[in-house]
């Protein structure tokens, strides 16, 4: 009873705020919540004969079977999580460091140009990346081997060395993506008031101390946002990076196969969307549980930082 009154009261008190939020809510309702009905595809046998999704035969968990049939589910899950953790940690470390360093550089032109250059790789699409990577590392004419030969060293065949690709994939991920989060951190640093720095200077803090005790803590909030969004998709994502770099080279699968690439490769020849949906459901539930836990922990530590 009390709650209902609360809602109505809130509605009338903040009606302008509600109106401002309304378009966004409607957008997500239509664009994202409606299509969620399609999750039901994961539990039926797709069939052209029945035009209605809910008339198709319910098959329980049959569509999920292919995930564990190959005995790879655990390996794939661990691979995916492992890569994502490495991505999250390294990208944030790198982009925070560079953003802090950049913010202290005074040369106007140098700063402007390097800042743009560091952001450049983000513009390279993955299909182009795959061509570049192949031309850097292929055995016969790759740039790497050409250089090695000129130096009198033995050429290396990277495409048959699975462990090397763990590092290559991480390096190219960083190369391509750290600029994006760096811009976010730079913008956050811009928002920090000069007064903090002035006060610290008077207290005798040197530039390292100021960066460590003022700038870095002020980035915490931004970091938490990036973290929570990354964690929610911990079983998804980066399909293009992995698929374009590795392609169908089975030699590298043991270290580079993630859930998304597995699903793509196994279902390329099937038109039944049930299994693809099933894989998505698995990823979603995993991310959902993880997020609920992490958000609750963050809330316990500092309410301000929690996402919801």
């Amino acid at each position: 009873m009390r709650k209902k009154k609360g809602l109505l009261h809130e509605l009338s008190k903040n009606r302008i705020l509600f109106l401002m939020l309304l378009p966004t809510l409607l957008y997500f309702l239509i664009n994202n919540y409606f299509p969620m009905i399609g999750i039901y595809y994961a539990f039926v046998q797709f069939d052209f004969h029945s035009s209605n999704l809910f008339q198709m035969d319910f098959v329980g968990l049959k569509n999920f079977e292919f995930l564990w049939k190959s005995g790879k589910l655990l390996e794939l899950t661990l691979n995916t999580i492992g890569y994502n953790i490495a991505f999250i940690v390294l990208v944030n470390f790198l982009s925070i460091s560079v953003a802090v360093l950049l913010s202290e550089i005074k040369g106007k032109w140098f700063k402007k140009i390097t800042q743009s250059v560091l952001f450049l790789p983000y513009f390279v699409s993955f299909v182009i990346l795959s061509v570049i990577v192949f031309n850097l590392f292929n055995y016969d004419q790759g740039v790497l081997n050409t250089v090695l030969e000129r130096l009198g060293a033995e050429p290396v065949d990277l495409y048959s060395k699975p462990t090397a690709w763990i590092f290559l994939i991480i390096i190219f991920f960083l190369w391509k993506n750290f600029g994006y989060s760096m811009v976010i951190y730079l913008a956050t640093i811009t928002g920090i008031s000069d007064e903090y720095y002035e006060a610290a200077k008077i207290d005798g803090a040197n530039i390292f101390q100021r960066a460590w005790y003022i700038t870095v803590p002020m980035l915490k909030n931004t970091f938490v946002i990036l973290l929570l969004f990354a964690l929610g998709g911990i079983l998804k994502g980066q399909f293009d990076l992995f698929y374009q770099m590795v392609g169908n080279n089975g030699l590298l699968f043991s270290t580079t196969d993630i859930l998304d690439t597995y699903v793509y490769r196994s279902l390329r020849v099937t038109f039944d969307m049930g299994m693809a949906t099933a894989a998505g459901v698995y990823q979603s539930i995993f991310g959902f549980v993880l997020i609920m836990v992490v958000n609750t922990i963050i809330k316990k530590i500092n309410k301000e930082y929690a996402l919801f």
Binding site: L17, L21, L25, I37, Y41, G280, S284, A306, L307, F308
Partner: peptide, 30 residues
């Protein structure tokens, strides 16, 4: 709106929006 502290349901609506990054129906329904 979502950062206004006097907006009571800001956390609920934030979750409403965030939730869509976790679950999706896939390509066919979209």
């Amino acid at each position: 709106v979502l950062q206004r502290k006097d907006f009571k349901y800001r956390n609920f609506f934030s979750f409403f929006i965030y939730f869509t990054t976790l679950f999706g129906g896939g390509l066919v329904p979209y």
